[in-house]
Design a protein around this nucleic acid. Structure first.
Length: 782
DNA sequence: CAGTGAGCGAGCTTCCGCTTGACTT
């Protein structure tokens, strides 16, 4: 292999592949795969006494790559450092320069924001030096985050519970969720009534719907209004027709893509990123971790041509969007299709195709004409009554971008968005009342965050970056600060009063579901306590503006107006004493500890607190002679709401319920929650059943249900060797043998027909095969 | 939709931001 004269290093291998095609045989393009060097993983690695100098290392999984880059750099005449132009990219270039031992005379720093031939060639023609001030800003960012994370976390270990974590980004994300939950807890839902009525213009058969302006506070008021409506006449008070313009949303950034994919496709934030990554690697879309709204000139031209060819000139409106989000660094383009005329991707999964279509339509719509809508508002007066009804209708006169794409919305009440066409009416026309209906509603608390709406809020506050939104959300769940809600809600009655055409009023009670937090982000006890602790001792770090404030300082550093370590020193001189205080203070508030009352049996105090393994109830005093007794809270119980009675109930395990089939049945609490034990077999008690109240009858039902589930699970148990079993599991049929599971080879056919010989062979083959080295990936444990 | 079924203690745990990897009985 002859070595080309030029070596170009970019951050991503997919990018390298594309660029290599533009540059020809004189250029070899390699990827650094992001950062090649970082602060040492395990230790603090900042020399506080010597200018906060960072101690860097090349992580193990990067060493092979680094030697390869070194070799390539040594044999190249010129090395082009082409990492992104943002702060992190500049630092990557500098680390490469240092680690690869490059020389100024044969090193060039280049940048481009679009992966187009023109942009690349232009970058090559205009090299510059590494911007050391910008590198310093990155070092300041990195060192600050390490200081905050590695000094705060141990405080939590000592004061609250081991293995917790805190950081500039994650702790604020948790705070958002905790504070929202507090708002919800403080919210008092109040009932009110809304009235709708159906009208028919005189001499017409058309009916349209009008809604009473304003709300009524009580059922009595609602009933009175309906009675009044019987006796009055209705006329058109005014007709207003207004032109309305709707403008398309900009093309996607990481955060808007995550939100829209959640709303329209039901994807989780990390799922969106995985699917997008695949689309990117296969060359279908531009880079998916971006905060930029910009489209390259070439992309705009291609999209324009597409719109003109398929829809016509009147649908085209070329636009440039400018970001308004805090701290955006715009190293890339917005997310768009690489070839806009591609509608169907070969070999794509259903998810990839759906996400691609979303990205493509959004990018096209961003360059399309406004939608023009005629909105009609009719006000209807009710005789001498002060009440006014309003009917609105929308007619789309020119659909513009709506033909391709309409943005989704978060609101839960998605109905009633129908905008019917209203009959032609003019002022003074009389109307006949058909029917009217007063429906009881309830004021709504602010919504809980979803993964996607949390990302939206974080972006608004400038907290986190496109590459960290998804990982942060999984971190705060892994640490047990936040959970996805599983509460289905409870039924609630509401009243509907109906006024029929014949004047009779009927009252009905209907039921709706309320209070569900399913799939929403809900703080745990630990999450709330950690948040309380941090906001008391480190209000500055938990301040929603902390990141924005330090970003301003980083900007000054990047412009060479402030030395980075001086600023870190200034921060540390305030921060570190606060750490010492939080570690040593003895008369501070007790976080998460709550006294519940006295145990009537012993007279000892009963309290809840955070224990080594999470929330526990304690009977007795740790200072007293008798050792205190402990019991963990059950799933669904909360330290802030548990009662004395519930707490005492936790000590009544194991409970003997009686006998079934001549064997004792008992209820106990284990590592994984409450269970029924019978004949040395265990059956989990579902979380919607109170373990303290399970009866013998219910326990038998659970045992029988488990037995039948086991029968369905079992495909074959070999009589000759009962250890070998063919079972039906979560991922389909498999073989279980001595606590190990074995996948069935492809093409084995009907799993029920597997013989013992076949099964033994599968086990032997799998055991003989080399065990693949498993990465310790951060899978969430549950 | 599997499997598990203590006990308040050893050592260890932890940050944010760049980038994929090779895995799934």
């Amino acid at each position: 292999m002859s070595s080309p004269k030029n070596l170009v290093i970019v951050e991503s291998p997919a990018k390298a592949k594309t660029i290599e095609k533009f540059l020809g045989a004189d250029y070899r393009v390699m990827s650094s795969y992001g950062h090649i060097r970082d602060l040492k993983k395990k230790s603090f690695s900042i020399d506080v006494d010597h200018g906060f100098s960072p101690i860097y290392e090349i992580p193990d999984d990067k060493s092979a790559l680094v030697s390869e880059l070194k070799k390539a750099a040594a044999s190249a005449e010129t090395v082009w450092l082409a990492s992104d132009e943002d702060r992190e990219g500049e630092a990557i270039a500098w680390h490469l320069y240092e680690v690869l031992g490059l020389k100024p005379e044969n090193t060039r720093r280049i940048v481009f924001h679009e992966i187009t031939k023109k942009a690349i060639l232009n970058a090559i023609a205009n090299p510059r030096d590494i911007d050391l001030a910008r590198v310093d800003a990155q070092q300041a960012r990195r060192v600050l985050d390490r200081i905050v994370g590695f000094e705060l976390s141990p405080v939590l270990w000592k004061r609250l519970k081991p293995a917790l974590s805190a950081g500039r980004v994650q702790s604020v994300a948790v705070r958002l969720i905790v504070e929202r939950e507090n708002e919800i807890a403080a919210f008092e839902s109040k009932p009110y009534f809304r009235v709708v009525a159906w009208f028919t213009p005189e001499g017409s058969s058309a009916t349209f719907r009008g809604e009473l302006s304003g709300r009524l506070d009580s059922e009595a008021e609602a009933e009175a209004l309906l009675k009044d409506c019987r006796a009055t006449s209705f006329t058109v008070k005014s007709v207003a027709v207004k032109p309305l313009k709707k403008t398309p949303a900009p093309p996607f950034t990481t955060s808007t893509l995550q939100q829209e994919a959640a709303r329209k496709l039901g994807f989780s934030v990390s799922q969106t990123m995985m699917v997008a990554q695949h689309l990117y690697e296969n060359g279908h879309i531009t880079y998916m971790r971006t905060d930029s709204l910009n489209l390259s000139d070439e992309a705009v031209a291609a999209i324009s041509a597409q719109i003109r060819d398929t829809l016509g000139d009147e649908y085209l409106h070329v636009r440039k969007f400018h970001t308004s989000s805090k701290g955006a660094q715009e190293a890339h383009e917005a997310i768009r299709p690489t070839y806009v005329d591609t509608t169907v991707i070969d070999d794509a999964t259903a998810q990839e195709q759906k996400l691609y279509t979303l990205i493509r339509q959004r990018a096209i719509a961003s360059q399309m004409a406004d939608a023009r809508i005629k909105k009609t508002t009719i006000e209807i007066s009710a005789g001498t009554l002060p009440s006014v009804f309003t009917a609105t209708g929308e007619v789309i006169e020119f659909e513009g971008f709506l033909r391709v794409y309409a943005e989704g919305h978060d609101d839960d009440t998605a109905d009633e968005t129908d905008t019917p066409i209203l009959p032609a009416l003019s002022e003074g026309d009389s109307l006949t009342l058909g029917a009217a209906e007063a429906t009881e509603r309830f004021t709504q608390h602010p919504p809980r965050y979803t993964e996607a709406s949390l990302v939206n809020k974080m972006e608004e506050l400038g907290i986190g970056r496109p590459s960290t939104y998804a990982p942060t959300i999984s971190t705060i769940q892994q640490r047990g600060y936040v959970e996805r809600g599983e509460n289905e809600g409870t039924p609630r009655d509401y009243t509907v009063l109906t006024l029929a055409k014949d004047g009779t009023i009927t009252r009905q009670t209907r039921t709706q579901n309320t209070g569900s937090d399913k799939g929403k982000l809900v703080p745990t006890d630990i999450g709330m306590i950690v948040n309380d602790f941090l906001t008391v001792y480190f209000p500055n770090i938990l301040d929603y503006n902390f990141t924005a404030n330090v970003e301003e300082v980083f900007d000054e550093i990047a412009h060479g107006r402030l030395p980075w370590n001086g600023e870190i020193s200034r921060f540390y001189s305030e921060f570190h004493p606060a750490v010492d205080t939080a570690l040593t203070i003895t008369n501070g508030p007790k976080f998460g500890e709550r006294h519940l009352g006295t145990d009537p049996a012993t007279g000892e105090p009963v309290s809840v607190k955070i224990g080594r393994f999470g929330p526990v109830v304690q009977i007795g005093d740790s200072e007293a002679e008798a050792k205190p007794r402990f019991a963990s809270l059950l799933k669904g119980q909360s330290m802030s709401t548990i009662t004395l009675e519930e707490a005492l109930g936790l000590f009544e395990f194991p409970r003997e319920l009686g006998n079934y089939e001549d064997k004792a049945v008992s209820v106990g609490i284990g590592r994984f929650g409450p269970y029924v034990r019978h004949d040395n077999k265990y059956v989990s008690i579902p979380s919607d059943m109170a373990a303290t109240e399970v009866t013998l009858g219910q326990a038998i039902e659970l045992i029988e249900a488990k037995r039948s589930a086991d029968r369905q699970k079992t495909i074959t148990v070999f009589e000759e060797d009962p250890d070998v079993q063919v079972l039906n599991g979560r991922y389909g049929p498999y073989i279980a043998y001595k606590k190990k599971n074995y996948k069935l080879p492809k093409g084995i056919g009907d799993p029920a027909a597997i013989t013992l010989e076949q099964a033994r062979k599968i086990i032997a083959d799998a055991d003989a095969a080399p065990v693949p080295a498993r990465r310790t990936s951060s899978k969430k444990k549950k």
